[in-house]
Amino acid sequence: MMQVFQKLQEAWVFKVCLSCAVTAAVQEHAQIFAAFVILVFADLASKWLSLSRQRLIERGVESPNLWQELCSIRAARRDGYIRSSAMRTRFVHKILSYAVVVASAVVLDFMLAHAQVPAFATNVVIGYLAITEFISILENMQQSGVEEAGTLVELIRKRSGIMTDKKQETERRNEK
């Protein structure tokens, strides 16, 4: 019996960390948060490609391709197009803002559920945030030279109801 307890105590830190990771991985909220982090990182990477393209164009490359943009990210960082302090500040602010907004929606849904009213806030907030991140990624890709991304942006904006300005909102209302 003592051997069993000794075996359980071996590498206990690893076992605790692994069990926490597995528990988090199967929790829906942890998965949603991880998905948001992936979207934000994809947005960040697409922004770097866009800034790298800007640098290449200013250096005389007429129509840089995606591979050139990717290879030029390090040079764009060195030349100040990509600043880690600005990117880090935006990233942390964005993740913290998302966490606060989603937490507020969860609290609202909790209150609505206790008042026997259908909860909706969390789904709306998560959906809106995911769509806006996806649109941002597509806009960055469009600035990186992927022309098809612009068409997708318009399609997603139209389907989701997320407009960029008053003119688009007026056009949408007139269509109805």
Rank of each mutant, 00 (worst) to 15 (best):
G127R: 02
V100S: 05
Q116D: 15
Y98W: 04
S84G: 08
L108Q: 08
F110K: 11
A121Y: 00
R90D: 14
A86K: 13
A113G: 09
I95W: 00
G80Q: 09
A103S: 10
D79Y: 06
I135M: 07
A115L: 15
A103M: 09
S104N: 11
V125G: 03
F110E: 11
S97C: 09
V125H: 00
I126C: 09
R77Y: 10
S84K: 10
A103Q: 08
R90T: 12
F91S: 05
R88Q: 13
K94C: 08
T122S: 06
A105P: 01
K94N: 10
G127I: 01
V102C: 01
M111N: 12
G80P: 03
G127P: 03
G127C: 07
S136M: 04
V106N: 05
G80H: 05
L112V: 10
T132K: 07
A86N: 12
Q116W: 14
D79A: 11
V124K: 04
Y98Q: 00
R90A: 15
F134E: 01
M111R: 13
V107Y: 07
V100M: 11
S104R: 06
L96F: 08
V117P: 11
R77D: 08
K94G: 02
N123Q: 12
S104W: 06
N123D: 10
G127S: 09
S85R: 13
V101P: 00
Y81C: 00
M111K: 12
R77Q: 12
I126D: 03
Q116A: 13
Q116L: 14
A115K: 14
P118G: 09
S85F: 11
V92D: 03
M111Y: 14
I131K: 04
D109S: 03
F91W: 04
I126Y: 01
Y98D: 02
E133W: 03
V92Q: 05
Q116F: 13
A113Y: 10
I95T: 00
A130R: 05
A121K: 01
Y81L: 04
M111T: 15
S84V: 13
V125T: 07
A119G: 12
V106T: 12
Y128T: 11
A130C: 09
A105Y: 00
V92G: 02
R78P: 07
R83P: 02
I126L: 08
V101S: 03
A103I: 04
A86E: 13
I95E: 02
L129I: 04
A105V: 03
A130H: 04
I135W: 02
V100H: 06
I131F: 04
T122E: 05
V117D: 14
V106Q: 07
Y128K: 14
R90S: 15
A105S: 05
D109C: 03
R90V: 12
V102W: 00
H114N: 15
V106C: 06
S104F: 03
L108G: 01
M87R: 11
G127D: 08
M87N: 11
E133L: 01
G127N: 06
A119C: 10
I82V: 08
I95Q: 01
A115V: 10
R77M: 12
A103W: 06
F110A: 11
L112C: 10
